[in-house]
Each structure stands twice: as structure tokens, then as C-alpha cells.
Write a protein that binds this DNA or RNA. Structure first.
Length: 423
RNA sequence: GGAAGAGUGGCUGAGUGGACGAAAGCGGCUGCCUGCUAAGCAGUUGUACCUAAAUACUGGUACCUCGGGUUCGAAUCCCGACUCUUCCA
């Protein structure tokens, strides 16, 4: 969430940020309307509580001295009742206040390009050339079906459309990619690996910003468990340190984690859904950083490079987009998307989103650090990025490395993992 | 799945209705002292919010796992949840 002090002191900056995001200003207005009322009520009820505490102490003294306190107690009964009523009102308002804050998105970073829609995202870098074929490249669903490595029909039969069955070397390709990613990040990039739970509670979902706004997008077990299937390992991993005060020499913390990711993709029906392009369950390796505030911009570049290196080692052409104000996600201040080119479907496909959340998630999840003993704790900055998401990478891999006779050549770096040169 | 017990500050651990934001010890911090130094002495030691102050200085509220309740008053009593331990299945 945003710092309430910032909203109070500079509501117009927040309004401008909301406009730049094409986001409703409704909650800002609600905040401004409620803020002074909330303070006034807290002041009032706390004053009454102070009085109650003073008199209660007096009663204790009188009792000790064996004096008759019944008059005072009678008075206090009235006051206590009053406090109870006011307290209920105040905490209702305080809850509403908290809800409002949870519904105000992060402020875009000043380096985030201004834009009206995803069309205004800026390509800031390209690597490699889209591959030229001397035959007509096929889409991955045809190649994969002929090689019998992906079974879309049976996935749909046992779960539903958008649930993929990998088979044989298709299945091993998934494992190989996951291991390759984790090995690279843990040995070369300095990340510590986490294997998190794939179900989390609503507190964790709120901490990273999926709740309350995006409940529709998530699978939920609501038969008394109140657990959500994670849409990304960002959720369990970022929340590992919720409600903690870290010491400064722990920072930066860098974790990577494999997880399956579950997304209902509500509202995305019919858009790029063929084959592996948009699925409900997929594998991903996620990178998460916790840094000092002054180091997060630098860490954002480094983290993005860590993801890009995967694509370079696999020899897949990509481009880096700086997402514009209208396209960055709710909790995020600055975001790069990595897109890879896939010749069979002739599209640029997003395989990674690398985001700097600054202190927005840290406020929600209450993750702090202390520079020095005795100093006031400050919020850390959190960042994450996919390093990388598998389905579209597999699309690009199959389509980029296809041969005329319908096989797929395995990139050098993967061969030790998968054990074959060609599928 | 059933039974019993437990959950207190950075840690260990006392406290079973009023002098408790919480003993004591350890640890941390700050001073002082000192040739016997991983020593001694003294002081200090959480978080959030409201208020005040325009980052330090005020006064206050809340927090003893969490949420309710009883009471003028709750770490302490009652109810519910969660977690952990042990025993049984």
C-alpha cells in the first residue's frame, strides 16, 4: 500500500498517478473523505480510554485503602458503555480505511514511460534476430502432437481446456528447463533456492497484492480451508518475511523458487489460447529480491539480466519492453517484460515480467529492516521476475528449433539435462 | 480422527483480577572504571497509531498467538480459532 502520509500531503500526485494508470480515483476520494474523520474518532475514544484508565487506578487505590468506591464505579459503568459503542464505530471506520488503502495501486516510478495502453510500451532492447527458415515453420501444437510430447486432448478430458499433459521427452523437457534455470540462478546469480507451498492463505495473497482486487483470477479451496492456489511463487516467497524486521546485513536477500502456477484467466477467454499460449496451470521459476530502498533500481536491472541470460543461453531471440503507466500491474512501480519471438505462431510471447515494487508490497506484508540498532525500522523494497515461465518458452523452443522433418533440436545447454540432442 | 498440555519482549523464563508494557537472567546499546580483558560497575533496551513537533524533544491509546466475552479494571477469568508438544488410534 501507499504511505498514508504521502496521500495526505500530496493527494494530487496520487491522483495524477491514478490517471496515468487509467485507474479509478474512487478510493483516493474515499480516503480523503474518511481520513480526518478517522483521526477525530480515534482521538476522541482514546481520550475517554485515558480517563477510564486513570479512574480505574483510583478505584484500585480506594479498594486497597478499604474505601467505598461504589459511586465511582457506577460512573465508570456509564463511561465504559460509551467507550464500547464508540470503539466499535471507530474500528469499523479503521477497517474501512484499511480496505481503501488496499485498493489504491502503487505509484509508477518516474522512469516508467507514460502511456494510454499496452500499445505505448517501449521496446528498450532487442537481442538476436528472428530465425529465417527455408521451409514453412509449423506451430508448436502440430509439432508437439506429431512427436507425441504434449497431449492437449487428454489434459482437457481429465481437467479442462488449458490443462496440459506432457509426455515422454515433453515431460522431461519441463524438468530439464526447471533444473537448468534453478542451477543457473543458484550457482551463477547468487540466489538461494526455496521450494514453497503451492497453496497459501488470504494474508499472503493480500501481502503481495492479489487480494482483494483479483480474487476472480485465482483458484480457491473454500471448503473450510480458505486456501488459494498460487498464481506465482512470488506470493509464498515474498511473504516469507512478512511481519519481520530484517537486519541490514541480511540484505539483499535473493531467492529463486520453482512452482506450479494456477490462473483462472477470467476475462481472457478466446485470446491467444491455442496450444500452450494461455494455460491454467504452468511451471515457472521465480526470482525474488529484498533490497535497501536506494538499491532497488540497480537490483531491478540485475534481476532482469538474470532472466535474460536464460534466453541468451538457450539462443532464443528476445526483446525487453518497458511497460507504460497504463500497463504495469497493480502493485508495481516499474516493470520490464521479456518477450520472445516464435516463428510458428509468428508472435512475440511474454515469458517474464520483472518488477520493482519499491516499498508497496513491503508495506502490505509489513517487511522492514533496521539500518542500525536503535534506529526506526524502514520498509524494504521488494522485486521479482520470472526466470522464466515455461509454456511460452517451450513454444518458442519447439518452433525456433524445429527441423523440416518435424523434429526439435535441443540447445547445447539443455542436453546434459535432457540427455538427447534431438526430440 | 481422539485425549492431555502449552503459546509472555531478540532469547530463556516469572507472573493466575488492580502498584504489569510486564520480574529475573542472557543478549544488545551507552557511559564509567580497569593491566589479570569473551572481566567489573552504572544506565538503557519493542512495535503501531493518535497528539505535539515539521525528521530529536510532548502527552496518550493499543499490543503478553489471534478474535470475541465478563468486569470500573484482564497477561491473569470465560468462549471460539490457530499453532506447537506429548500420548492414543
Amino acid at each position: 500500500m501507499l504511505d498514508p502520509k504521502l496521500i495526505r500531503q500530496n493527494p494530487e500526485a496520487v491522483r495524477a498517478a491514478l490517471k496515468a494508470r487509467k485507474h479509478t480515483e474512487e478510493y483516493l476520494d474515499k480516503f480523503l473523505a474518511l481520513d480526518s474523520k478517522r483521526k477525530q474518532m480515534i482521538t476522541e475514544v482514546e481520550g475517554m480510554k485515558a480517563q477510564k484508565n486513570v479512574v480505574s487506578d483510583k478505584i484500585a487505590v480506594m479498594k486497597r485503602n478499604k474505601e467505598d468506591a461504589s459511586e465511582v464505579i457506577k460512573e465508570m459503568q456509564v463511561l465504559a458503555a460509551k467507550i464500547k459503542g464508540l470503539d466499535a464505530e471507530t474500528s469499523a471506520i479503521d477497517n474501512e480505511f484499511g480496505e481503501i488503502l488496499l485498493n489504491i495501486p502503487n505509484m509508477p516510478d518516474e522512469t516508467t514511460p507514460y502511456g494510454q495502453s499496452e500499445d505505448d510500451n517501449v521496446v528498450v532492447k532487442t537481442w538476436g534476430e528472428p530465425k529465417k527458415f527455408d521451409f514453412e515453420p509449423k506451430p508448436h501444437w502440430d509439432i508437439a502432437k506429431d512427436l507425441d510430447i504434449i497431449d492437449l486432448e487428454r489434459g482437457a478430458k481429465i481437467a479442462g481446456s488449458g490443462f496440459i499433459v506432457y509426455k515422454g521427452l515433453g515431460s522431461k523437457l519441463e524438468r530439464s528447463l526447471i533444473n537448468f534455470f534453478l542451477d543457473l540462478h543458484t550457482t551463477k546469480h547468487g540466489y538461494t533456492e526455496i521450494f514453497p507451498p503451492f497453496l497459501v492463505n488470504s494474508g499472503a495473497m493480500t501481502g503481495t497484492g492479489q487480494l482483494p482486487k483479483f480474487e476472480e483470477d485465482m483458484y480457491k479451496c473454500d471448503k473450510g480451508d480458505e486456501l488459494y492456489a498460487i498464481p506465482t511463487a512470488e506470493v509464498p516467497v515474498t511473504n516469507l518475511y512478512s511481519n519481520e524486521i530484517l537486519s541490514v546485513d541480511q540484505l539483499p536477500i535473493k531467492h529463486c523458487a520453482y512452482s506450479a502456477c494456477f490462473r483462472r484467466e477470467a476475462g481472457s477467454a478466446g485470446k491467444d489460447t491455442r496450444g500452450l499460449l494461455r494455460v491454467h496451470q504452468f511451471n515457472k521459476v521465480e526470482l525474488v529480491n529484498w533490497t535497501l530502498p536506494e538499491k532497488s533500481a540497480e537490483a531491478h536491472e540485475a534481476l532482469t539480466r538474470d532472466a535474460e541470460e536464460i534466453l541468451e543461453l538457450l539462443g532464443i531471440p528476445y526483446r525487453r519492453l518497458a511497460l507504460c503507466t497504463a500497463d504495469i500491474s497493480f502493485s508495481c512501480a516499474k516493470c520490464y517484460d521479456l518477450e520472445i519471438y516464435s516463428p510458428g505462431v509468428d508472435k512475440w510471447l511474454e515469458v517474464s515480467s520483472c518488477s520493482n515494487f519499491k516499498d508497496y508490497q513491503a508495506r502490505r506484508a509489513n517487511i522492514k529492516f533496521r539500518r542500525k540498532i536503535g534506529e526506526k525500522p524502514e520498509f524494504v523494497h521488494t522485486l521479482n521476475g520470472s526466470g522464466v515461465a515455461l509454456p511460452r518458452l517451450v513454444v518458442a523452443l519447439i518452433e525456433n528449433y524445429q527441423t523440416e522433418d518435424g523434429h526439435v533440436v535441443i540447445p547445447e545447454v539443455l542436453r546434459p539435462y535432457i540427455g538427447v540432442d534431438v526430440i
